[in-house]
């Protein structure tokens, strides 16, 4: 059975050595999952330290629309007087393996922004603030929760995305 990206990543070398020509192991894995690269590109697999057969991956399932879009969820499922906004950003042309490179993001910010947490292994960034929470996913989706109104949601979105754009795949 094909495993999720995260399940595969758990057992991956995770050295981010760059010998395969990718910025990080997660990028290498994404390109493997999208059928762009074989695992033999990785020196650890070539050296027989990892078994190719233990890794199987289907291309990431598109979640929601793949076109750039914005949708408002009113009311926010838990807070009736607030709204949630989901934004899908346009993946770079030709990219099959995501939008934000969370490894690079983690290296840049490394807990430097209060309330910002980045999980390279899960491909998620989350910013917790008093104005609501924002989550970004490596495939280019951004979710703004519990914003008080649309303009507040936009403000949070621009603030968050400006940070994440530091490391577009």
């Amino acid at each position: 059975m094909a495993k999720s990206l995260y399940e595969n990543y758990k057992n991956f070398p995770k050295t981010d050595c760059g010998y395969c020509g990718n910025t990080s192991c997660i990028t290498m894995l994404r390109r493997f999952c999208s059928g762009e690269l074989p695992l033999s590109e990785c020196i650890y697999f070539r050296a027989g330290l990892y078994n190719v057969n233990e890794f199987s991956c289907s291309p990431p399932v598109p979640r929601g629309t793949q076109k750039p879009s914005i949708s408002y969820i009113r009311p926010c499922p838990t807070d009736a007087d607030r709204i949630s906004v989901e934004v899908s950003l346009l993946p770079p042309e030709g990219s099959k393996y995501g939008y934000f490179d969370m490894i690079t993001l983690d290296n840049i910010f490394n807990h430097a922004v209060p309330g910002l947490r980045i999980s390279p292994s899960l491909g998620i960034a989350r910013l917790e603030s008093e104005w609501g929470d924002v989550m970004g996913f490596s495939e280019g989706r951004v979710l703004i929760r519990r914003a008080s109104n649309e303009s507040s949601a936009f403000w949070q979105l621009s603030r968050f995305v400006r940070s994440l754009w530091a490391a577009v795949s």
Binding site: E7, P77, L122, R126, D133, F137, L143
Partner: peptide, 13 residues
């Protein structure tokens, strides 16, 4: 937040 955790579980795994 429970909703964020549910979204994270869906997106990550």
């Amino acid at each position: 937040h429970p909703h964020d955790l549910a979204v994270a579980l869906d997106a990550a795994a």
